[in-house]
Amino acid sequence: MRTATTAAARRRTRNLVLAAIAGVGVAVWVFPVLWGLLTSFKTERDVLAYPPAVFFTPTLANYREVLFGASSILPNLWSSFVVATAATALTMLFAIPAAYALGRLRYPYKRASGFYVLVTQMLPPVGLIIPYYLVLQKIGALDTYVGLAVIYLTFALPFAIWLMVSYFEDVPLEMEEAALLDRAGRMRALWHVILPQVRGGIAVTTIFVFLNAWNEFLFAVVLGGNRVRTVTVAMFNFISVEQTQWAKVAAGAMLAMLPVILIGIFAQRHIVKGLTVGAVKGGGRR
């Protein structure tokens, strides 16, 4: 009897310790963001209070300022939205058919073409930025939506192709054969039978591509300008100019990150799956 209770007590302590360690992990990841959220509602005076003010009178002044003030980030949010949406649409348009071919069809040089896509995915952006800059400058496409959206394809397309391939591979092999026998033909087999079965994968891939495009900074800062200034670039400029106005910076950052945070929370399950699909399966199979 006594040993049973001590065992139970030990298990309880153990679980408490585990939960505490996990709690610290969560805190480390969440706290900076939460702190930023708090800061965005503070006056600049409260920001600099020591010890830090946990209880303070919240103000919306910072949000008012970054949204409607002299250096409003509304145009930047719009720029980010346009570029990210266009880049995502373009990416999916090219990636889905290519991934289908790579994942399910037989054709010569299949390994080589898959390898080529993989290599293009590994190129670090800094390595490519100089030719992009020079070429876009030459054709007058610097600081244009089209220019930036097309350049975003370079990092989004290989990634999207490989992620989609893993979803296409999950569809049972006989699906096309059944559809072909049912007189669908190649194109309609893809459209009516295969694509509906990878809807989840398309959603996950779209989310990832959009997140990456929204968060992109290097291409945006070099290839953008006064007309096309994405919100990441605006944030960077903001802090360079207004070094000490943390509350405003925090408010701006919260607005800039609101879309991705919302997507992150709502699509949580899908994101975890998207992250793991390539890693777990790629590790196991290829």
Partner: peptide, 20 residues
């Protein structure tokens, strides 16, 4: 001839039903 042109129907071992 392509499968669709042969006027044949097939039942697969895995059935290959369209899940959606």
């Amino acid at each position: 001839a392509e499968p669709g042109e042969r006027d044949v129907a097939m039942v697969f071992q895995s059935y290959a039903l369209y899940p959606h």
